[in-house]
C-alpha cells in the first residue's frame, strides 16, 4: 500500500523493526516506571519524591537512549547498509525512524503524563499545578523531538550528544521561567486550572518549534543525495 509515493507497508515494517530492536531496553525502562509509580502510590513523602524523581530521570534517559539506540547506533553499528539493502527509499527509512522514535518515547511519556494528571486531579495536590506540569512536559517532548531530528539529520555523534546535553540543561531554566509567568505564578498553588492567553501562546510556541524541527529535517532529507557516506 502506498500513500503519496511512500510504501506504508515497508514503513510499518521498519517501525516494528526498530520497536523490536529497542524492546529489551524499553522493557527495562517500563519496569523502572512501574517501580517509580509504585513508590509514588505508596504515598509517603520520601517515596513520593523518590518516585517522582525516578519517573523524570527515566523519561529523560529513555529519550536519550532511544535516540542512541535506534538512530545513532544504526550508523555506528553499521546496520544502516542492511536496512538500505531492503527495497526502501531513504525518505521512507527517515519517516520510519521518525515514527519509531516518537512511538518509543510516547510510551513512557504517556505513562508519566497520565500519572501526573491523575495525581494532580485525584489527590490533594493543587489542580492549578496541571497547567504548569503540562508546559514542562511539552517542553520535554519538544526537546526530545528536536534531539531526534538532529540525530537523524546530523551524522556526528559528538554534535548529537552536545545537542541533547544542551536541551537537557535548558529544562530547569525553562521550568523557572514558566513558573514565573503571571497566570502560572498566580494559580499554581490553587485549585484553578487557568489556560490564559499567555500560557496558550507558550504552548503554541512549543508546538511551532516541534513542527519546525520536523519540517526542517524532512526538507533536509528530501534534498539529501546520498544515504551512506562515500568511502
Amino acid at each position: 500500500m502506498t500513500f503519496a509515493g511512500h510504501d506504508l507497508q515497508m514503513i510499518r515494517l521498519l517501525v516494528v523493526k526498530d520497536w523490536q530492536v529497542y524492546q529489551k531496553q524499553l522493557a527495562g525502562y517500563l519496569a523502572g516506571l512501574l517501580l517509580a509509580l509504585s513508590l509514588i502510590g505508596t504515598g509517603r513523602t520520601w517515596s513520593f519524591n523518590a518516585g517522582g524523581l525516578l519517573l523524570l530521570v527515566l523519561l529523560v534517559s529513555t529519550g536519550f537512549f532511544a535516540i542512541g539506540h535506534i538512530v545513532v547506533n544504526e550508523r555506528k553499528e553499521s546496520t544502516l547498509p542492511f536496512v538500505m539493502s531492503l527495497p526502501v527509499t531513504a525518505l521512507d527509512v527517515f519517516i520510519a525512524k521518525l515514527i519509531a522514535g516518537l512511538l518509543i518515547y510516547l510510551v513512557p511519556f504517556l505513562v508519566v503524563l497520565s500519572t501526573t494528571i491523575l495525581l494532580v486531579l485525584a489527590t490533594s495536590l493543587p489542580d492549578g499545578l496541571l497547567v504548569y506540569a503540562m508546559l514542562v512536559y511539552f517542553f520535554m517532548f519538544l526537546s526530545y523531538c528536536v534531539a531526534l531530528c538532529v540525530a537523524i539529520a546530523v551524522e556526528s555523534e559528538g554534535w548529537n550528544i552536545f545537542i541533547q546535553m544542551a536541551l537537557m540543561t535548558m529544562l530547569s531554566p525553562f521550568m523557572i521561567w514558566a513558573g514565573s509567568l503571571q497566570s502560572i505564578a498566580t494559580n499554581v498553588r490553587t485549585n484553578h486550572i487557568v489556560w490564559s492567553p499567555e500560557v496558550l501562546s507558550v504552548f503554541g510556541g512549543e508546538v511551532l518549534v516541534t513542527a519546525l524541527a520536523l519540517a526542517v529535517t524532512c526538507w533536509f532529507h528530501t534534498r539529501k543525495a546520498s544515504v551512506l557516506q562515500s568511502s
Binding site: E77, P81, F82
Partner: peptide
Amino acid sequence: SDDMRLYKGK
C-alpha cells in the same frame, strides 16, 4: 558488503 552488520541483540 564488508561494512554491513546485522543487529547484535537479535
